[in-house]
Design a protein around this nucleic acid. Structure first.
Length: 617
RNA sequence: GCGGGUGUAGUUCAAUGGUAGAACGGCAGCCUUCCAAGCUGCACACGAGGGUUCGAUUCCCUUCACCCGCUCCA
């Protein structure tokens, strides 16, 4: 349902963002560029705050995570190993009649599911020269008309059937079912050649065109096939590629993580919903490496079990992937709560077995309910993905080990010692399970059965000696999506009637103090009293080394408060005559005014800095 | 990529085949003892390109961007 009210809400937010300098259209003076957005002064501060909070929470304040900052352009081999070169360049066809887009490799699977194809199955006889023209004609005039109205056989059965009959007479007939349906979709073979039918309506599909979702460029000034490079479509792969280097230099041991913040680029088909789906965007990704469950079981006897709800507490040595996955989901939710996104504004989506990539064990998406979000069957806002927390098994490191030929396994002393003390049956059981997992991965990745068995045997033997490829839990968040979530969450408006009885709308950005672009506004009560101005500038300079301060002496005091409200500044301090000692007991105190309710209190200048720091950190 | 809609100061909106106005906002000055007060002044727009026309912001075409729907989202 298109909710005009919600569109209006989004429009007002967009307009405020422009007006106050949160977000501008990229290249605006040249008419803009589709899918790219810039952050203005307030947006830039907001984004820096968010990234710094993430970096502090994930990297600096933890013992078990190290940071990384990799390049955007990397060896193209990385994207072959990760699968992006293949999955990002699917050829697509579109239907000339109903305009739907079809992935070429999904055309036949989709066809097989269509009722009209199924109803034809009894009639079509591929691989023979039997053309059941009568039955086809009858089908075209009955079922075909309702199921596949744009199919050539339905639109113009005589023409289609006549050239098919000619071909069959000459001994040319469709060799398989796929080709048979192309025959049925082709009206004028001489003009168009054989065309494929649209699974939805039977209409003519265009030739497949390459859809490349990665930005392509060339290293070096000469553009040639040999020096093609890609702008990274995600930051994660750099972490996997540098896994060994970080491990060796950071003095970390599994379990540990590598965090990275950085730009990524995707040629989205349809950039939409303001900055939500941009072609250039920033990610905050953590790859948290853990021991395989078989290693945990060898060392600790069993793997800890966790319920699917709630934070499982401090990490424990006997945690397997499920506990770690649950832990990171809850850690990330706490992060969002800590910057003002309450659980009620968030949504959760646990990916189903069908949605999961073949190598993934689980994935939980954290959603935010945007004004443009769709509603589900029950009328509830579903929300859009802010972050996905995936349990990705040992797939990524395994891929890079296979493609680069460099070992990605780690040696675990504890595992080796524990293994040797295990009873034989336990050893065999763990060996077998590890072997099966490795074999499944290798076979899924296209390795032949025999070499896969050989490699899996080697891997399982390695486990018995204390070697394994770490598994990974991946919390991957979109910065720009989070910024948009924070902005829409903060936005509020109230209608106020002024002294003259005129209604005006008051806009207020209720950012959490931790993310607010400006932390405090410093205002002299009056501009034309030099003593007030001088004192106010002193307060500004006192606070400026510690936080983003905004000094304002323009217009009336009320107007200045209103300006800060729209910028989302949580606190303002006003220097008045009492500050200067008009009431001696109030000397060197200021008015502190809260953004959200306009409440005021009196605070000593000497206490101001610590008071503010306690609330913005 | 496809279909529909939109495009006028920073924002929200007017008007017009012949000089484009307002409100709010911004800036400067005066004033102002706590929530967009007042006064004075200033700056700022027809998305871009082409065509029709004596003359186009207005009509036509193209393009770009934004919004809605379809498609895609590892």
């Amino acid at each position: 349902m298109a909710e005009p009210k919600e569109n209006l809400q989004m429009e007002k937010i967009v307009s405020l963002c422009k007006r106050r300098g949160f977000v501008f259209q990229s290249s605006e003076i040249y008419g803009g560029i589709n899918g790219f957005w810039d952050y203005g002064p307030l947006g830039a501060e907001l984004k820096r705050n968010v990234k710094e909070l993430w970096w502090n929470a994930i990297v600096r304040r933890r013992e078990d995570v190290a940071g990384l900052e990799a390049t955007i352009i990397m060896s193209p081999a990385i994207w072959k190993a990760s699968g992006h070169v293949d999955t990002f360049s699917d050829p697509m066809c579109s239907c000339k009649a109903c305009k739907k887009l079809i992935r070429e490799d999904q055309w036949w699977p989709m066809m097989c599911e269509q009722p009209w194809v199924q109803s034809l199955a009894a009639i079509v006889a591929p691989g023979t020269n039997e053309l059941r023209g009568e039955e086809l004609l009858k089908w075209a005039k009955t079922k075909g008309k309702s199921f596949a109205p744009n199919l050539a056989l339905v639109k113009n059965p005589e023409v289609t059937l006549s050239w098919m009959a000619e071909d069959v007479a000459k001994g040319k007939y469709p060799a398989n079912a796929e080709e048979y349906y192309s025959y049925l979709a082709t009206e004028q073979r001489g003009v168009t050649g054989l065309v494929k039918p649209c699974p939805h309506c039977g209409g003519e599909l265009t030739e497949p065109r390459p859809f490349n979702l990665m930005f392509k460029t060339h290293t070096g000034p000469i553009e040639s096939e040999e020096n093609i490079a890609y702008l990274r479509p995600e930051t994660a792969q750099a972490i996997f590629a540098q896994f060994k280097n970080v491990l060796e230099t950071s003095r970390q041991k599994v379990p540990f993580g590598i965090g990275q913040i950085g730009k990524a680029f995707r040629n989205e088909i349809t950039p939409r919903n303001y900055t939500f789906r941009s072609r250039e965007f920033e990610q905050m990704e953590l790859e948290f490496f853990i021991k395989p469950d078989e290693a945990i079981e060898a060392i600790h006897g069993s793997v800890a079990t966790v319920s699917e709800a709630g934070h499982p507490g401090e990490p424990q040595p006997n945690w397997g992937w499920q506990a770690w996955h649950q832990y990171w989901v809850e850690e990330r939710v706490r992060f969002y709560e800590g910057i003002g996104l309450s659980r009620e504004t968030l949504g959760f989506h646990r990916q189903t077995a069908e949605e999961l990539a073949h190598y993934a064990r689980a994935c939980v998406d954290i959603l935010f309910k945007f004004p443009f979000s769709k509603r589900d069957e029950n009328g509830e806002l579903k929300g859009e993905e802010l972050e996905g927390i995936a349990a990705r098994s040992d797939f990524d490191l395994s891929q890079h080990q296979r493609f680069s030929g460099k070992p990605m396994s780690v040696f675990d002393d504890e595992l080796r010692n524990a293994w040797n003390k295990l009873p034989k049956e336990k050893q065999d059981d763990l060996w077998r399970r590890y072997y099966e997992n490795r074999k499944r991965y290798l076979e899924k990745s296209g390795v032949e059965a025999e070499p896969a068995q050989k490699q899996a045997t080697e891997d399982a033997n390695g486990l018995a000696k204390g070697n394994y490829i770490p598994h990974v839990i991946e919390p991957s968040a979109g910065v720009d999506r989070l910024i948009l979530a924070l902005i829409t969450n903060a936005y509020s408006e109230t209608v106020k009637t002024d002294d003259k009885g005129k209604n005006e709308t008051i806009y207020l950005m209720k950012f959490h103090p931790r993310v607010a672009p400006i932390k405090v506004g410093v205002l002299p009560l009056l501009k034309n009293k030099p003593d007030l101005v001088k004192k106010a500038l002193e307060v500004r300079d006192l606070l400026r080394p510690w936080m983003n301060v905004y000094y304002d002496d323009g217009g009336s005091i009320g107007k200045r408060y209103a300006r800060q409200d729209e910028a989302g500044t949580p606190f303002c301090v006003t220097i008045d005559f009492d500050t200067l000692g008009e009431k001696t007991e109030l000397l060197d105190t200021v008015t502190l005014r809260y953004r959200d309710d306009g409440q005021q209190e009196r605070l000593k200048i000497s206490e101001l800095r610590d008071w503010l720091l306690a609330r913005i950190r």
